[in-house]
Amino acid sequence: MFPIVESREIAKNVFFQKIRAPRIARKRKAGQFLVLRRGELSERIPLTIVDSDPAAGTVTIIYQVVGKSTAELAAMKVGDELVDVVGPLGLPTHIESFGTVVGIGGGIGTAPLLPIATAIKKAGNELVSIVGARTKDLLILEDEMKAISDRCIVTTDDGSYAKKGFVTTALQEFIDGGLKIGLCIAIGPVPMMRAVAEVTRPHGIKTVVSLNPIMVDATGMCGACRVSVGGKTKFVCVDGPEFDGHLVDFKELTMRNRAYLSQEKEAMDRYEHKDGACMGGKAPAPKAAPTPVTTGGAR
């Protein structure tokens, strides 16, 4: 069993939890993820490992509540135990000397970006980061990103905080300003990653994106997470999660992520109903984010 040793809400519907999982804490490298299950009939949820502490034997996850499974996870308290945590899965980020690296995190995507950006910076690269969110309430890890970045721009789509606009606007400004970019890493909602790839493509800037499709076993056994990269089918769980953003078929990924929308809604409706009606006026679980995000979409 894997006890939760720390848990808090760090932004609206965004949760930070530390889990005791010594084997994973020991091995994990930046860019890798884990899969967890809350209870016996729970699904397997893939989430990026944001940080690990090998000495304490803990791993950190940050996720947004987007459906029943993440709502249940968020409702778990310190001392509660997950039945399963497995990892570290996926390939670690390829880290080398790139010169200047632009790291872009959109919404909950800043959580998986943080460990990668940290490793990139540690390897001696100049780190320019762009951290964006739809609105101020959804902005996460601003201080953490600022602490490791040589320069950090914060954007909100609605202008409720910092610079108004999309992360791509800020990126375009850096490019127009003559910044020589060795590598761009973009992690966030699929439309954002696609938009970033389109901004960098004409300039030939190598762009890496981290994908979060639907997964089941996440060890290469099932192919649920298959995605087309440069016309070839790849399994994100074992061949990724990072790929060349200029080669990923984002349209297919978007469609495939919608495969279980109706079941996800059914499960969430049932969960909320049960919580309100059958548990006698206990505080309701955090509401799902309005945008439909599928399994794995929680990051």
Binding site: L41, E43, S69, V216, D217, C222, G223, A224, A267
Partner: peptide, 20 residues
């Protein structure tokens, strides 16, 4: 995938089991 969902994850019990 189909069999893992239905056997290991017990998708035939959905929504009592989470995996569809």
């Amino acid at each position: 995938e189909y069999l893992t969902r239905s056997n290991l994850m017990k998708a035939y019990l959905f929504p009592d089991a989470d995996t569809p």
